[in-house]
Structures are given as C-alpha cells and as structure tokens.
C-alpha cells in the first residue's frame, strides 16, 4: 500500500504539534488562551484521526473523526459562552 506510511508520518507530525498546543494550554495566562489551545488540539485531533483511518486502512474509523468534528464545537461553545464571566 502506497500512501499508508506517509499518512502515518503525517499523523505523528500532527501529534507533535498537539504537544506544542498543549504547551500553550499549560502556560496560557487566561482561560481564553487555554480555550484557543483546546480548539487547536481539537482540529489537530480530527485531522489526525482521518489520517490514521487511512493509515490503518480501516474505513469505519473515520466516523470517529466526524463525531469529533461535530462535537468539539459544542464543548467550545459552552466554554466560550461562559468565558464571559470574566476574570474575577
């Protein structure tokens, strides 16, 4: 299979970027920064899942990515909605 190894490599690279984002999650001075980092990790995880679905050669795995793409939005919205509480 031709592309599979490359998909795996791309997934590993994206996972490393996830690490960078988690660094921002750790040091972010405000909660909003952390939320942005979470959003980034979300997108990266969705992409990684799609890539890994191709890398494993398993079609049915991509459903997980779809679920994530849909649902991370909900979590982000809740956090964003209540960021408005401010920095007491």
């Amino acid at each position: 299979m031709i592309g599979e190894l490359s998909f795996g490599v791309a997934a590993v690279v994206l996972a490393a970027f996830m690490g960078v984002s988690v660094l921002r999650l750790a040091i972010g001075p405000t909660a909003a920064d952390r939320a942005v980092a979470l959003d980034t990790v979300n997108t990266l995880v969705v992409t990684t899942m799609v890539l890994l679905g191709a890398a494993f050669g398993q079609v049915v795995y991509v459903d997980v990515a779809i679920v994530y793409a849909l649902l991370s939005f909900v979590g982000t919205l809740y956090i964003a909605r209540y960021l408005e509480g401010g920095l007491k």
Binding site: F56, G57, Q58, V59, V60, Y61
Partner: peptide, 10 residues
Amino acid sequence: GVAPIYTYAP
C-alpha cells in the same frame, strides 16, 4: 490487531 468489526475489515 484491528477493531473487532467485520465491516470492511482487512
């Protein structure tokens, strides 16, 4: 191993 799902399984 792969997931125990026979749909389109290798």
